[in-house]
Write a protein that binds this DNA or RNA. Sequence first.
RNA 1: UGCCCGAUAGUAUAACGGUAGUACGACAGACUCUGACUCUGUUUGUCGAGGUUCGAAUCCUCGUCGGGCAACCA
Length: 553
Amino acid sequence: MADSTAEERSLNFLEEIVEADLQSGKYKAIHTRFPPEPNGYLHIGHAKSICLNFSLAMKYGGKTNLRFDDTNPVKEETEYVDSILEDVNWLGFKPSNVFYASDYFEELYGFGVKLIQKGLAYVDESSSEQIALQKGTPTEAGVVNEYRSRSIEENLRFFKEMREGKFADGAKVLRAKIDMASPNMHLRDPVLYRIKHANHHRTGAAWCIYPMYDFAHGQCDSIEHITHSICTLEFIPHRPLYDWFIEKLEIFPSRQYEFARLNLNYTVMSKRKLLELVNEKYVSGWDDPRMPTISGLRRRGYTPESIRNFTERIGVQKRDNLIDVSLLEFCIREDLNKTAKRKMVVFDPLKIVISNYPESIEMLTSEDYPEAAEKNSYRELPFSRELYIEREDFMEDPPKKFFRLAPGKMVRLKSAYIIQCNEVIKDGSGKITELRCAYLPESKSGADSSGLKVQGTLHWVSISQAINIELRLYDRLFKVENPGMESGDFKDYINPGSLHVIPYAFAEPSLRNAKFSEGYQFIRKAYFCLDKDSSDEKIIFNRTVSLKDAKKG
RNA sequence: UGCCCGAUAGUAUAACGGUAGUACGACAGACUCUGACUCUGUUUGUCGAGGUUCGAAUCCUCGUCGGGCAACCA
């Protein structure tokens, strides 16, 4: 029989859970959610979570909500909401619904009232310092204070007055009444509501009390009937609390599952550190092409496909990890190799004169997509007597395995002719200023009757038609694999050479019409994309990723 | 000194009591009008000690190591 199982990939642990829930009839359909706090830009780690949540629902015919966890007005801004919406969309996902935790403030308040009525919450007037002190330590139980035994009526009245704005910030909080001696610190009467007279980006001044994460997140999941609430490992200790609220409030039983967050080497991933890089101008902004943000990767030339593919390849597990960026680079090369248009650009020019070529211009053709036969097309390239080649592609005294140009040696000029170097011209200081070469007319690309086989093929541009472009070459932002784990300030490990600008490179004229939507491969060099800083006077390209380079020495 | 997670090549990830496999990386070779791509080959692994079993990466016990938990942050 045919090998029908050949394509099957083994399930990850979340898929196993979902399949079991579906098979047992626990759920007829699953519902996931991606719940960012709009306090910063999304990064590649969020992409893992986004792909996980959306892909899981898509695979099993369910839905995924995008929900902004906007319960802390002093940190959140509309600018971040907009960028998150853009990034999720760019990654290729369409949320079933876009919700906000702030949509549920009234319901959440009601949950607080309900808990008080059940004798499971109380208004505490202690300062945050006192509360912290009374919590004890992981090895010592906490202590109960006098507010814990307040009457239900008094709690109800104070909670209402908190909402009405009768108290100053910090004067009172609503706390759950659970267990001040629990070995799990999160169960030692966690704060549910705090007073913040602050403007909220969506609700304005309508509220002056805001729910804490633990009292908002699970309840929002429940309100939306989220079946599988997937978050990162650090929330494991919160799960008993998550379940406690569901049980006491008697609401839809969403379940929380945790996976290991993505760590990438040679970068940092925490919002706090990324914000620091932006604020202190180590990078040009959240979308600096060196940033691991979605917007940075987008500007760098990464495609949504490559990022989705990357998150698929790294898998999902519960063990901590530090993924090698080389895998991310592999994914973008794999994509761009098939989709990027080939172009010729000389970074560091060396002039060559084809002595036996006439004073005229010939138009040659070259393939745009050599790796995608089905969509291949061709472009025209001007060829003339005076050309630029890459300075590093010539050596006066080459080692044995040097496949490029040298005195007396022959190479092919890509999509053009075979040439031979006859003469090296230098200035007074000994610097090579020009090469005199001869071409073989019968070696024309596509109509080669020379019978010659040469070892090297070089990229080139015709001097008089070449256009000038700026190249921005990026390298890893940090010198060490895990800057966040090093001693001292992580910024001490920033790679000073992470950006190298080539202000004047020489490009084939077709690049004048470069589009933001296209990726390009500058043959034998790297993949590039048009940068948004480009203007009519200056065309700027970002190096997305270099080509693999097997050259020795 | 408490509680909770976790541990398979360099990095990730499979094997669900029955031959430790795959990808990326590295190295070597073939091919090449990109020293790219593609193809071929090589390299390196079950944290440790006991136990259960005909058989253990997998189950049990005890260690070891790594991570998390004491914000009116999420």
